[in-house]
Design a binder for these strands. Structure first.
Lengths: 148, 148
DNA sequence: TCAAAAGTCAAGTGTTTTACTCGACTATTG
DNA sequence: CAATAGTCGAGTAAAACACTTGACTTTTGA
C-alpha cells in the first residue's frame, strides 16, 4: 500500500508545469532541476503523461512540455492512472474482477470495494489546480516564517 | 498502491477465526485448508497477529488459534498494521515525517495526507465482526442462487 | 512415558517490481 | 548545419514480495 515514485514524481512534475501554465513550454531539464528528479527518469514519466493526453510537447530550440488543459480541469485520478497504469488496490475491484478466482467469496473483498470507492472519490475530486494552489500557499508561508 | 497477499490472507484468516469465535481453538491446518493458503506462509502471518495481541494460541493436541477479543472489537486497521507493519501510503504522512527531506515543500504531500486520513477512517471504522457478517451473508446468497 | 499433534522460529530462495540508466534516434530552429 | 530539445526501446541493480525449509518446543492422550 505504498505510493510509487512514479506517481509522486509525476504528480510533482505536472504541478510544476501548472505553475507555468500559460507561459509557454517548460523544458524537461528545467522541471527535473526544479523538482530534483533525474532527467532520464522523468522523461519516461512525461512520455506516459503525453500518451494519456495530459501534456503536449514542442520540439527543437525553446521547446518543452505544456499542459493540454487548465490545471483545474486535470484530476489527480487521471494523472495517476496515466503514470501507474491503474489506481486499483486489488485485482478484484474494478471492471475485470474475473482475475480473482474466488472474488465473490473472499471475505476481504467488501472492504476492498469500500476502500477503493473512497480513494477514487478523493482522487477524482482533487485537481492539479488545487495541488498547485496549495503548493504556492505553502511556499509563501515558509518564506514568511523564515523572514521573521 | 496494491494490497499485499500478507494483508489479504491475514484478514481472511482472522475472519475465519471469527466464524468459529467461542468454539475453542482452530488449527493452522484447518484455517489454511478452508482459505486455500499454504500452511507455512500462514504460520508467519499468524505469528505477527499473535505478537500484536489479536490472536492467542494453545499448543499440543487439539490446540490452535483463537481471537483474543470479540470480532466486533477488532478493527481492520489494527489487523492490517499487525500484518503489514504500517498502513501508511507514504513516509511523509504519519508521525515520523522527517524521513522525507522536502516534506514541507513537496506538492504531493497535501494529497497524501488527505488520502491517508480517508483510508484510515475506513480501516478504523470497519471491524472483523462486520467482515464476518458480510461474508456469511454472501455465502448464503450464493447458496440460495445455486439452488434455484 | 512417549509419540503424535500442534505451534514457534530464523533463515533461505526464486520471482517480480521498482527505480532507475543508457544509447541511439528524430525534429526544430536560429 | 549544429545546437537544442524531445522520443524510444532496452538494459540493470537493488529491493520487495511471496513464499519454503528445517530444526525446534510444548502439550496431551493412549
Amino acid at each position: 500500500m505504498k505510493f510509487s515514485t512514479k506517481g509522486t514524481y509525476g504528480l510533482r512534475a505536472v504541478v510544476e508545469l501548472a505553475k507555468h501554465y500559460g507561459e509557454g513550454p517548460v523544458s524537461l531539464a528545467a522541471v527535473a532541476a526544479e523538482q530534483g528528479i533525474s532527467e532520464a527518469y522523468l522523461e519516461q514519466l512525461m512520455r506516459s503523461l503525453k500518451n494519456a493526453g495530459i501534456v503536449k510537447t514542442t520540439r527543437g530550440k525553446a521547446g518543452g512540455y505544456l499542459l493540454t488543459r487548465e490545471p483545474q480541469r486535470i484530476s489527480v485520478l487521471e494523472t495517476l492512472r496515466a503514470l501507474e497504469g491503474s489506481t486499483d488496490i486489488a485485482d478484484c475491484v474494478g471492471s475485470d474482477a474475473s482475475v480473482c478466482e474466488n472474488a465473490c467469496t473472499c471475505s476481504a473483498r467488501p472492504l476492498f470495494l469500500k476502500l477503493q470507492s473512497r480513494i477514487n472519490a478523493v482522487l477524482e475530486e482533487t485537481t492539479i489546480g488545487e495541488l498547485t494552489e496549495d503548493h504556492i500557499e505553502q511556499k509563501k508561508r515558509i518564506e514568511h516564517a523564515r523572514l521573521s
